[in-house]
Design a protein around this nucleic acid. Structure first.
Length: 568
RNA sequence: GUGUCUAUAGCUCAGUAGGAUAGAGCGCUCCCCUCCUAAGGGAGAGGCCACAGGUUCGAUUCCUGUUAGGCACACCA
């Protein structure tokens, strides 16, 4: 698609003594549509030229020739406001749409480069609660966004399946396993065992010792322990899979922490060989005081490894296995320091700079209840599956009320209910904390997933009634030369930029807000204009616009991991 | 205490890599279904952009400090 900004930058560049990229970056979009499509502020030039910005603007304006791209230039204050040739612009945008259709906005800028995305990563035998939603849903969206830009994505679910906690679970199971029906309801039952054994450990130090020994045995490959661990893992994963299916989130690898249990020695060896491993308080650590951080513990005083060591081993493994151009980690901001540390240590591991300079931690805010933090022990956890099912149930009730004759209610309720939850989570900047509230989370009016879906359904409904999608040749671009339609066209034009921006910032909300914007603009259009039953040419043009909007909404939603129903 | 993030309408948040009159949604007050799905649309009220300095032609945006809150701060992950 034509980059009109670049065309304008070139024109200005011919006249003014500023390099093109500088001009390009200074070009902005005026706050109001009637002020033009692009604006160049001339204030920067005023010092050098010793003239007022307004006069400079006038002078530039006189030297620029209008052509098929630009129909008008106005000087307002110190601004040079450019008006695109609307008909030509609209033609370009819609031709692009006609060419790419369901791939509109996609790109090959990724050029097949490998991107590793580490997200979701729940802990085995612990409830999958609403706090896990963000990593899962943001990671999934980043995955889809990068893929749409032509990258090869590898989604990794770095399952928390290793550590002393498993020694505890094994001990608990050994003692009271027959009292719990872990086959039926694995995570709930295992959690009960976990809480019970934890309490016992507090009372009796020797039990804790048994637990640690169990983990040691597990590490050493003891058959009983390994089999039990495998069982816990399988049962948990099966339960997680149910949630991933609901969300339609899937991974290319489930290599969790345990996977790296035999790959950490290399990390220790390299650091040792380079003399970077120092002894401190009985533990082996990498000193990071030069980087202004506390030391990174590589080996605990009892000889066992840490989370950091496993993450470092994972970086090495992923560099070799996937040859990544970027590795993105999605976790809450609690772990900012941890990633800062291991990214520093990673630079000491003889890895190519290609890998170590492209490790990215994209942190996000935390989910809390109105009453404060969720706590397993106090039973204040809100399980994600319960939330999703509640959402579906509420949607069903609304459908029953508004559209009782709807076919395929179950499936639609699922799409809308799940979509609402996902959208809600992706609508704001990652870093914002979220206070969980059923009624806010499951609000279906206003700037929400269901709103976006509803507008999409309208476009589908119109297309279905029309019974055809007009040919691009039948579209009269001039008929779209009005404020309402032009606003939509401009949004459609900026779709790819929006995707790229979301990718660069690892912020799906940029797309989510864009889609609301587009949906709102179309809603205005829909209310102002009759689409069907008009003169042929008018109808063709408006139906085509409807098709274009629906198409972008659907693609955008898919980039967020949200499905669009055809009716609702 | 140190580091870090956050602070914009009653509430939840946008604000395009410093620019023109700071925008949405929710909630509130009105209005719109003989008309393509009212989960919709329109109108209105609602702002010292936490505070104080600084840089700049220009600051909600950048810098410094202050205040308030979140998070992290070595053998948990």
């Amino acid at each position: 698609m034509i980059d009109f900004k670049e065309i304008i930058a070139k024109k200005i560049n011919n006249i003014v003594n500023l390099d093109e990229t500088n001009i390009y970056n200074n070009l902005e979009i005026p706050p109001k549509q009637d002020m033009g499509d692009y604006a160049f502020p001339c204030f920067v030039l005023s010092k050098e030229l010793k003239k007022s910005p307004q006069i400079i603007a006038e002078e530039i304006k006189d030297k620029i020739e209008l052509d098929k791209n630009i129909s008008e230039i106005k000087v307002v204050g110190g601004y040079l406001n450019f008006y695109l040739n609307k008909e030509y612009f609209i033609k370009n945008v819609l031709n692009e749409m006609a060419e790419k259709n369901e791939n509109y906005g996609s790109s090959n800028i990724g050029n097949g480069k490998n991107i590793v995305i580490d997200y979701s990563s729940p802990n085995i035998a612990k409830p999958f609660h609403i706090g896990h939603l963000r990593s899962t849903v943001i990671g999934n969206s980043i995955y889809k966004i990068y893929k749409y830009l032509g990258y090869n994505c590898i989604g990794i679910n770095h399952i928390g399946d290793w550590g002393t906690q498993f020694g505890k679970l094994i001990e608990g199971y050994k003692r009271w396993g027959n009292e719990y029906n872990i086959e039926e309801n694995p995570i709930d039952e295992l959690t009960k065992i976990y809480i019970r054994i934890n309490n016992l450990c507090k009372e009796d130090e020797s039990v804790l010792e048994d637990c640690r020994n169990n983990f040691k045995k597990l590490e050493d490959g003891d058959e009983y322990c390994v089999n039990l661990w495998k069982k816990f893992k399988e049962l948990s994963l099966k339960e997680f899979e149910r949630i991933y299916d609901l969300l339609d989130v899937h991974f290319d690898s489930y290599n969790g922490e345990a996977f790296y249990s035999d790959k950490m020695q290399e990390v220790v060896d390299i650091l040792e060989r380079k003399g970077l491993l120092v002894e401190s308080e009985g533990a082996k650590v990498v000193d990071l005081s030069e980087q202004g951080m506390i030391p990174c513990i590589i080996e605990k005083s009892n000889g066992s490894t840490t989370y950091a060591t496993r993450d470092l081993a994972a970086i090495m493994y992923r560099a070799r296995e996937y040859d990544f151009n970027k590795a993105i980690y999605l976790t809450s901001y609690e772990q900012i320091l941890h990633f800062k540390q291991i990214f520093e240590v990673a630079k000491m591991l003889d890895l190519d700079e290609k890998y170590t300079s492209n490790l990215i931690h994209a942190p996000f805010g935390m989910v809390q209840l109105k009453t404060g933090k969720m706590s397993t022990r106090e039973g204040t956890i809100v399980k994600l599956e319960d939330l999703l099912n509640e959402s579906i149930t509420r949607v069903k009730a609304i459908i029953e009320n508004k559209n009782p004759n709807l076919e395929n209610k179950e499936e639609i309720a699922k799409q809308v209910g799940i979509g609402a939850v996902i959208f809600n989570d992706l609508y704001n900047n990652r870093i914002k904390d979220e206070v969980f509230d059923w009624d806010i989370m499951l609000n279906f009016n206003g700037e929400t997933g269901p709103y976006m879906q509803y507008i999409y359904v309208r476009t589908k409904s119109i297309l279905e009634k029309a019974g055809y999608i007009p040919k691009i040749e039948d579209v009269d671009f001039d008929l779209l030369n009005n404020d309402t339609a032009y606003k939509i066209i401009k949004l459609i034009y900026s779709f790819q930029d929006t995707i790229i921006q979301a990718a660069e910032k690892y912020e799906p909300y940029i797309i989510a807000r864009y889609l609301i914007n587009l949906a709102q603009s179309f809603s205005t259009f829909y209310n102002e204009n009759k689409i069907l039953g008009e003169e042929k040419k008018v109808q063709d043009t408006r139906v085509y616009l409807t098709y274009a909007v629906g198409n972008v909404l659907k693609i955008g939603a898919s980039l967020l991991g949200i499905k669009m129903p055809d009716r609702m």
